[in-house]
Deep mutational scan, measured.
Amino acid sequence: RPRTRITDDQLKILRAYFDINNSPSEEQIQEMAEKSGLSQKVIKHWFRNTLFKERQ
């Protein structure tokens, strides 16, 4: 599977949600997927990776 490139606009959407809640529900993930055009799997990975980076 090729690597997914996240655009600046998509990143703004993900960051806005992350700043509010770094552990989103399935409904929130689905909402982000619809708004951003990214798959739910990509969003879950982004949140997991970003949370890991923030904790270091």
Score class of each variant (00 low, 15 high):
K35F: 02
K12G: 07
Q28D: 07
E31R: 12
N21E: 14
I13A: 03
A33I: 13
D8A: 10
Q10I: 02
I20P: 13
Q40F: 13
L14I: 02
F47C: 07
K41I: 08
T50H: 08
I29K: 04
I43H: 00
I13T: 13
K41L: 06
S39E: 15
K41A: 07
K53Q: 09
F52A: 11
T7H: 03
R5I: 14
V42T: 10
E27C: 10
R1G: 10
L51D: 10
Q10D: 07
L14A: 00
F52T: 14
E26Y: 13
E31N: 12
F47L: 07
R3F: 06
L14V: 04
E27H: 01
S23D: 07
I43L: 05
P2T: 13
D19Q: 13
L38C: 08
I6N: 02
K35S: 05
F47N: 02
L14G: 00
F47H: 07
A33Q: 15
G37Q: 10
E34M: 05
F52P: 14
P2K: 15
L14N: 00
L14F: 03
K41N: 02
E34R: 09
V42S: 10
S23N: 12
E34S: 06
D9C: 12
L38I: 05
N49C: 07
F47Q: 03
N22F: 01
A16K: 07
R15S: 12
E34P: 01
K53N: 11
R55I: 01
Q30N: 09
T4V: 08
P24D: 00
E26I: 12
V42D: 14
H45M: 10
L14T: 00
K35T: 04
T50C: 05
H45S: 12
Q30I: 15
R48S: 08
P24L: 04
I43K: 00
E54C: 05
R5P: 15
R3A: 08
W46I: 03
F18E: 03
F18Q: 12
E27T: 05
R3T: 14
Q56V: 01
I43V: 09
E26H: 15
I29V: 08
T4Y: 14
A16V: 05
F47K: 01
E54V: 10
N22L: 03
R15G: 08
A33D: 03
T50Y: 03
T4G: 04
G37C: 07
Q30L: 13
Q30Y: 14
T50G: 09
R3S: 14
Q56T: 09
L11S: 10
R15V: 06
E54P: 06
T4M: 15
L38P: 00
R5L: 15
L11K: 15
I13G: 03
V42Q: 11
Q10F: 01
R48K: 11
Q56H: 03
I43P: 00
N49L: 06
E34T: 13
L14Y: 00
Q40H: 06
S36M: 05
F18N: 04
K12R: 11
A16C: 09
R5C: 15
H45V: 10
F18G: 06
Q28S: 08
I13Y: 11
L11N: 11
S36K: 00
S39W: 00
F52M: 07
S25Y: 02
L38Q: 03
M32P: 00
I6F: 12
E31L: 09
L11A: 05
K53V: 06
N49Y: 06
E34N: 07
I6G: 02
R55Y: 02
Q10N: 08
R55H: 15
N49R: 12
F52C: 15
M32V: 04
I29L: 12
L51Y: 08
D8K: 12
K53L: 14
R3W: 01
I43T: 05
L51W: 06
I20K: 15
F47V: 10
K41T: 08
K53C: 05
Q56Y: 03
D19M: 11
N22T: 03
H45Q: 12
F47E: 01
E27S: 08
D19H: 03
T7F: 03
E31G: 08
F47S: 03
V42W: 08
A16T: 07
I20W: 04
D9P: 12
M32K: 00
V42L: 09
I6D: 07
S23R: 07
I6H: 04
A16F: 07
Q10M: 03
E54H: 04
Q30C: 04
T7A: 13
D8H: 11
Q28I: 14
R5K: 15
F18P: 04
N49D: 14
I13S: 05
S36F: 03
E54K: 06
I20R: 12
T4K: 03
Q56I: 00
E26P: 11
N22E: 01
R3M: 15
L51T: 09
I6M: 15
I13M: 10
I29E: 11
I13H: 03
I6K: 02
K12I: 08
E31Y: 06
F18Y: 13
F18W: 07
T50L: 10
K12H: 03
R5T: 15
S36A: 10
A33K: 07
D9S: 14
I29A: 03
L14P: 00
I29H: 03
F47R: 02
H45T: 12
H45K: 13
R55F: 07
R48N: 15
E27I: 04
R5D: 15
K53P: 04
H45F: 09
I6E: 06
K44S: 09
E26N: 14
E34F: 02
L11W: 05
A16S: 15
E34G: 13
G37H: 07
E27Y: 02
F52I: 12
R15L: 09
R3E: 14
R48Q: 14
L51N: 07
F47P: 00
P24H: 02
P24E: 03
W46R: 01
I20Q: 14
Y17R: 08
K35E: 05
N21A: 11
R3C: 03
F52N: 15
N22A: 01
H45Y: 11
S39Y: 07
